[in-house]
Design a protein around this nucleic acid. Structure first.
Length: 325
DNA sequence: CAATAGGACGCTC
DNA sequence: GAGCGTCCTATTG
């Protein structure tokens, strides 16, 4: 499954909600997360090739600041702190040599465009892999169980601040979902079925690309997982709360607004947004009723076990790993 | 008033 | 039995 090129639909970017900036690398937009096109030629034969026309049709949907971010280099993204990175990129138009303010892309240099394409695709794949790990679901939607589908829907709903989707897609497996048309999505969710369908297409494309990618090519493989110190999702083992918290802490670009290190060496961290961390934990564990009260009760259970404690100087929402990595 | 602490009980694996 | 999830009361800043 997933071996055929998915017919990627255009993200309805007029109605696509902006993703929560804290959940994505700085200055990116869901629009940029799409690539390929319906009549699209094949994606690159090998990942070494710079995506010829693949992606091209979607670059007119990129916001200029997104390009600005991309051209600044993904290796050094600005910290997306409480204020996000978008505004920062806008302050530096001179660093946006690719597309002019009219966004026509007529002055694109082929070489630069290829670099941008590669970077955007790479970042999208990283985001997807991060989400996979966090949700403990497969990268290929075709492999999802109905439970995985629910998790993904909850996640997408949360990440892109979509209207409540509810249980319209209950009991559907990933294969069922993949077989559904945009119209069928809209029947089940008139409010955002089209958006959901578009996001699923991105995931399908990513799975397709990963499958086609040459083995060992880090750009299209597990680049973002390689830096993970704690692989909590290995072998489908149930994740522990402390592992989950560490995972969030390892992705400051994505979750720094919710939880961050105060002193990484000593393992001291602060929960900046207790409700959001609890919500993420609830999504991860399929516990919609999760809240900080319950999450903190679980953290307190770690006191006795010597996993987490309150720091010497106790502060609100500040905890300390007893054995920091 | 939100965070903290911890007892008690139930559920799932 | 471990690891929470849930509900609860009491305390603290």
């Amino acid at each position: 499954m997933g071996s055929t090129s998915p017919g990627v639909t255009t993200l309805p970017h007029s109605c696509l909600a902006r993703p929560d900036p804290a959940l994505l690398p700085p200055s990116r937009d869901p629009d940029t997360q799409s690539w390929g096109c319906p009549e699209s030629p094949s994606p690159p034969a090998t990942p070494e090739q710079p995506l010829p026309t693949f992606c091209l049709h979607y670059f007119d949907m990129l916001y200029s600041e997104d390009i600005a971010w991309a051209t600044k280099g993904v290796g050094e993204p600005s910290q997306s702190g409480a204020h996000g990175g978008r505004g920062e990129a806008q302050k530096e138009p001179e660093q946006c040599p690719i597309i002019d303010s009219q966004g026509l892309g007529l002055h694109l240099e082929e070489h630069s465009l290829e670099q941008v394409q590669s970077m955007v695709v790479g970042e999208v794949l990283k985001d997807i892999e991060t989400a996979c790990k966090l949700l403990n679901i497969a990268a290929d939607p075709a492999d999802w169980s109905p439970g995985n589908v629910q998790k993904w829907i909850l996640w997408t709903e949360h990440q892109y601040r979509l209207p409540q989707i509810g249980k319209s897609f209950q009991e559907l497996s990933g294969k069922d979902l993949c077989a559904m048309s945009e119209e069928q999505f809209c029947q089940r969710s008139p409010a955002c079925g089209d958006i959901l369908h578009a996001h699923l297409d991105i995931w399908k494309s990513a799975a397709w690309m990963k499958e086609k990618a040459a083995p060992g090519d880090v750009r299209y493989c597990d680049a973002s997982w390689a830096d993970s110190e704690v692989d909590s999702s290995c072998a489908g083992q149930p994740i522990h709360l402390w592992q989950f918290l560490k995972e969030l802490l390892l992705k400051p670009h994505n979750y720094g607004r919710f939880i961050r290190w105060l002193n990484k060496e000593k393992g001291i961290f602060k929960i900046e947004d207790s409700a959001q961390v609890a919500r993420l934990w609830g999504i991860r564990k399929n516990r919609p009723a999760m809240n900080y009260d319950k999450l903190s009760r679980s953290i307190r259970q770690y006191y006795k076990k010597g996993i987490i404690r309150k720091p010497d100087i106790s502060q609100r929402l500040v905890y300390q790993f007893v054995h920091p990595v």
